[in-house]
Design a binder for these strands. Structure first.
Lengths: 211, 211
DNA sequence: GTCTATAAGAAGATAGAC
DNA sequence: GTCTATCTTCTTATAGAC
C-alpha cells in the first residue's frame, strides 16, 4: 500500500520537474532519470511527453474537485451552516485565511500544481483558464458568498461582498506569489496574513452596533 | 529617428517572443525570423541566446529606474509633496490606482517585462528576485510610506500602513494577473479596481472626525 | 516492462563566401 | 552584416532483444 506503480511515479516526478522548470525546460530523459528508468521505458506507459502532461492535468483537476468539498473554507459549507457563520469570530476568520494560505502553499499536490499552471501558461492556453478559475475566480466567488451571508447576519458592514472578498483574498494571493518565488520569506508572509486579517476584521466589523 | 538598429530590433522582437512563450519556448530561428534575418546574422550582434536575454534584462532594469521617478504614483513624490498628499481625495486615490494598473498592464515595455519575469522564473533565479522587488516589495514599500503620511495627517485611520498598502495594492496585483491571462476581462478588472478603491476609501476614511 | 541501439529532427552555434 | 552550408549536441520517439 506504500508503493506506487511506475506509471504513478512517472506522473509524480514529471509534476515535480514541470512545476520547477516548466514543460519546455524538462526533457523526457530527466523524467526517466528521476523515476530511475531509461527514456524508452517511459513510452511503455505514455505515448508522448505531451500525454504525460495531460495525465497530470487530468489527475490534478480530479483531485481538486475531490478536495473541493473538504476545502470549502476548512469544512464549513456556507449555505448549510448559515448559523455557524453568523457567529464567526476574528480567530475563526484568521484560521480560515491561514489554512487557505497553507493549503495552497504546502499541500503536496496543490502547491506544485499551482506552480505548474503559472509556469506553463505559454505552453497550453488551457492552463491560463484553469489557473484563473481555481486560484482567482472560485476563491473570490466562494468568499463573496460567505461575506454576503455575514452581511445579512449583521456581522459585517454592508459593503459589496465581491469587493470584500477581493480585500480578503487578494493579499493572500499576493503573499502566495511571494512565497513561490522566495520560500525563505514564508514566516514573514504568514505573519502578514494574520495581521492582514486582523485589520480586515477591524475595518469591516467596526460598527458593532447592529450585532 | 524612427528606425531602430538591427541590434535594437533583435532585443525588441526577442522580448515580444519571450514574454509570450518563455525563454525555452523561443528558438533563435524564431527571433531571427521576427527580425527578418537568418539565425547566423544574430550572432554578429550577440554571442549567444543567453546574451540576448541578459541584454533585455539589463535594458529593462535601466528603463524601470529611469521611469521610477516619473512613476512614483503619477509624478507625486511623497516626501517632497507632503502637503499635496495631505489633501488627497477619493478621486485622486482612484486615479492613483487606475494609472498604476494601466501602467503595469499597458506600458509597452513594462507589461512585456512583467510577463517575461513571471514566465522566466525557472530559467533564471535572478528573475524571481527582480519580479518580487519590482512588482511586490517596491510598490508595497512606496505605498506604505504614502499611507504613513496620510495617517500622520489625519486623513486615514491610524492602522498599520504596511497592511494598508497590502490592502490597497494586492487587489491591483491580483487583477493584473487576471488580465495577463485573460485580456478580454480588462474592462471588468478596471471596474473592480475602481470599486475596490472606493470601498478602501470608505473603510479607511470612515472616521472623518479628526480631519 | 526494461533495456541497448538508433533513428529523425530541431536546437544553439560556427566557418567562410560575398 | 548578411548569407549558405555545416557542425555538434540534445530532443523526442521507435525497433527489437531480453
Amino acid at each position: 500500500m506504500e508503493s506506487l506503480s511506475t506509471k504513478e511515479r512517472i506522473l509524480k516526478e514529471a509534476l515535480n520537474l514541470f512545476s520547477v522548470k516548466g514543460y519546455e525546460g524538462v526533457s523526457v530523459a530527466q523524467i526517466a532519470s528521476a523515476v530511475g528508468i531509461k527514456p524508452p521505458s517511459l513510452y511503455k506507459h505514455f505515448q508522448s511527453k505531451q500525454e504525460i502532461f495531460e495525465a497530470i492535468l487530468k489527475e490534478m483537476t480530479a483531485r481538486y474537485r475531490r478536495q473541493a468539498a473538504v476545502m470549502e473554507m476548512n469544512g464549513l459549507d456556507a449555505r448549510d451552516d448559515k448559523g455557524l457563520f453568523m457567529e464567526i469570530s476574528e480567530v475563526q476568520l484568521i484560521e480560515m485565511g491561514k489554512s487557505l494560505f497553507r493549503y495552497f502553499l504546502h499541500d503536496a499536490y496543490m502547491s506544485k500544481f499551482r506552480r505548474m499552471l503559472a509556469l506553463g501558461q505559454y505552453h497550453d492556453p488551457a492552463l491560463s483558464n484553469l489557473y484563473i478559475k481555481q486560484f482567482v475566480d472560485e476563491p473570490l466567488a466562494y468568499q463573496g458568498m460567505i461575506f454576503g451571508l455575514l452581511i445579512q447576519g449583521g456581522v459585517l458592514l454592508p459593503e459589496p461582498p465581491q469587493i470584500m472578498a477581493l480585500h480578503f483574498y487578494a493579499p493572500i494571493f499576493l503573499l502566495l506569489t511571494l512565497c513561490d518565488c522566495h520560500p525563505e520569506r514564508e514566516i514573514e508572509a504568514i505573519e502578514m496574513v494574520e495581521q492582514h486579517i486582523r485589520q480586515f476584521n477591524r475595518l469591516y466589523q467596526r460598527n458593532e452596533s447592529s450585532r
